[in-house]
Amino acid sequence: MTKLENFTKYIMAILTGLIVAALYAPIVMTIFFSFYKSRKGKVNWDSFSYEPYTKLIFEKQILESLLNSLYVGGVTVICSVIIGFYFANYYHTSRGKMKELLQFIIFLPFLLPPIITGLSLLIFFREINLPRSLNTVVIGHTIFVLAIVFKIILNKLETLKPSLMESAYDLGASKIQAFWYVLLPNIKLSLIIAGLLAFTISLDETLITLFLIGNDTTWPIKLWAKMRVGFSKQVNASVTLILILTSFLVLLIATIISRSEKRIMY
């Protein structure tokens, strides 16, 4: 290896390190400052404390909003993955012209500014006398994330050979058996990815939520409201907890997938 090649290799390594550091520094800082205090840019190294975490347990509003967000995110994942799979499967197997219209309708709420989607849903719910609640938020989020979920599942379905399901039927499987033993195991990864993405988007969503939430509150809206009146350590602590929870979920799912691929049916 020449000197120039060596030099380039080190420069590339440093650059990559800097980019990774820039990407993850804010997250690390958030975790760090949930344990330490700082004043005028200087860290007080003697200030290490779990207090923000213990206080968080007593900060009922943040905890409640977090639970609300988890509820909304969870139900949104279930609804959007079921509906998204159904539509994607219809789109994939149908030969009719209606499927293009269906795709357009699914994508519209995602492409429109969220304020339009939120406002339209608000008017619609008022017209049908449906009071605003966490459930109306779930409906809004499901409609919003459906495009992403639909596209991820559809992409996976399109990579599968049509003969795969045909051979299942050919070997005597009913539609349910073919779905359970053949289709589902082959698309489960895309369902998990779509669900995770739907959960992340739902957890993050504020604009549509603001229109549809009513008297409850979700976690990002609560954080936003709290930050307007000053930054508290509990915000950092709750962000850290969410980070740990989602990282744990991702690791868990990755482990399940890698194990299930080696699993033998009998």
Partner: peptide, 21 residues
């Protein structure tokens, strides 16, 4: 023509599929 073997199953399970269901 493309064999259409189930990629999520090993040879044993592929062959036994018709009987299992």
């Amino acid at each position: 023509q493309d064999y259409a073997l189930f990629p999520n199953m090993n040879v044993f399970n592929n062959v036994g599929f018709g009987l299992k269901i």
